[in-house]
Amino acid sequence: MLRSGNHVLTADEDPPTPEPTSAIVQAGSAEKIPEHLQRDLFVRYMMDPPPEDVANVDALFEAGDRYGDDHERALADLLAGRHPLQRSPFAAG
């Protein structure tokens, strides 16, 4: 006999599926897109961009976190080779 919480299970009874954690709920509840926008070419591209177009996306988000709207500092780091993109193996492509 198995115990799951307060409910006592018999040996041939499957335990209930656990409730998803809040993180799973969040990941699963992706923004609903109205039907007419699901055919929109821009939405389709942004939903599933070609891998080569997002090869550097992590470095670019890191750049956003680092520089925000400070483009002077971003440009200085780009010219000095210190920008997050310049650590990326895909930066040249």
């Binding site: 923004e31 109205p34 926008l37 929109d40 821009f42 939405v43 942004m46 939903m47």
Partner: peptide, 13 residues
């Protein structure tokens, strides 16, 4: 892009 698709695509990404 059309306005509503532009905004939706950016939010989604």
């Amino acid at each position: 892009p059309q306005v509503d698709g532009f905004l939706a695509g950016i939010r989604l990404f």
